[in-house]
Design a protein around this nucleic acid. Structure first.
Lengths: 211, 211
DNA sequence: TTAAAATCAGGGAATACCCTTAGACCAACT
DNA sequence: AGTTGGTCTAAGGGTATTCCCTGATTTTAA
């Protein structure tokens, strides 16, 4: 029996990459390449793949929502999330949204095939590194990767505004919140980034790719 | 003449993707696939590719540093940065570090080939979207990019101190001058760089390699 | 020597920085 | 269903710093 695979990713390189990895494999056929969330929703209905490899970071939709939606409409469909990020909270939410597997983009052919077999078997598949990370967290060991700073949605907006050289007053008007709230956010950002002032915020933001 | 291409990316999928895109192309041969900064540094020396496609976001090194290093050791090597991000400040820093081109990961075969031809010709190649973004930014902004700003010796010292997140008071102590003098210098720097505050100073400084 | 650079100051308005506290809201876990 | 944790909101009440103007003297370099 041939397994029908579809792939959703907005990067052509990734689409091509997976396709080329799996091309000459027995029992597997790639029947669809999609590049957006909306396209995926439509195409999955008619292509009816057995497994969908789904990039989390799509331009038009959140991968979490899309995953829920797809699962609701297609009960038998297996979804394996593919992502650059091995952020634990992300993985957890993705799996809670119905994803059957989670692999990083540095995966190889063998790992992919194992993932396919596993999810078709009704089990959940996690890439080795990912599994390790989840485990490390649940044991209570603090994540080694503390360098990665997590800013909240609002903090990112304030950060962006600071980057635009706006004053507290201007930011408050832009975001429709009190200047006092803006200051609170700025203080929290400084604290998280270890910055002594706004200049430090901008330095850290650039260094950590937060913009 | 055959152009020798090497690719550095920590995602196997991207490596595979580019490889499969370029595989059947005349005059092009892929001679190296690397997955880390250190591996690239070593391998480039012996593989001697004409063009290196370099992912910016590597696990072990900053793409910017790696780019500088590679350029220093291999004068004739052309480097095209590939990245997910189209942040202007990043692109600028990458190009300032010696990259000959910048393409996003959603590029296609034709665009890649055009990029190759362009950089081999000694010119700089920017993906259409990227170019647009850079252009959009420099319009309406005081032209800091082309008219290279001339800061005096003292202004540069003050700039450096601001970058170190020091206050006016601290800067004055560091440079053995009055706080009032520091303020004067800061005002002049802001004026020269078209900045609205210290954040703007740091942005302009980074964009223009003034540090 | 003339222009640019570096130095300094007064004084005021605006803004940033700091600490603390606290209610409202929402999602997750027991 | 209740509790916890995180986020967002906001305020009081400060102090410190930046920003902005003007005007000035001295030093340095073309």
């Amino acid at each position: 029996m041939i397994t029908k695979i579809a792939i959703t990713d907005d990067h052509k390189m990734v689409l091509k990459g997976i396709q080329s990895m799996l091309k000459d494999t027995k029992d597997i056929k790639i029947i669809g390449l999609y590049s957006s969330g909306s396209e995926t929703l439509n195409a999955v209905e008619k292509d009816k793949p057995d497994i969908l490899l789904l990039d989390i970071n799509l331009p038009d939709t959140s991968g979490i929502d899309l995953c829920k939606q797809l699962k609701k409409n297609n009960k038998t469909l297996k979804i394996i999330a593919i992502s650059n990020y091995d952020e634990v909270s992300f993985i957890k939410r993705m799996l809670n949204s119905g994803a059957d597997g989670y692999v990083l983009k540095n995966t190889d052919k063998l790992e992919l095939l194992t993932a396919f077999k596993t999810v078709l078997n009704g089990e959940q598949y996690l890439q080795r590194d990912v599994e390790k990370k989840l485990l490390a967290q649940s044991i209570g060991k603090k994540n080694v990767n503390t360098l990665l700073v997590k800013l909240t949605r609002r903090e990112k907006e304030v950060l962006q505004a600071i980057f635009e050289e706006l004053t507290t007053q201007e930011i408050s008007e832009k975001l429709f919140i009190s200047p006092k709230t803006v200051e609170t956010h700025r203080m929290n950002i400084m604290s998280k980034l270890g910055a002594k002032n706004s200049v430090g915020i901008i330095k850290a933001a650039i260094e950590n790719n937060l913009l």
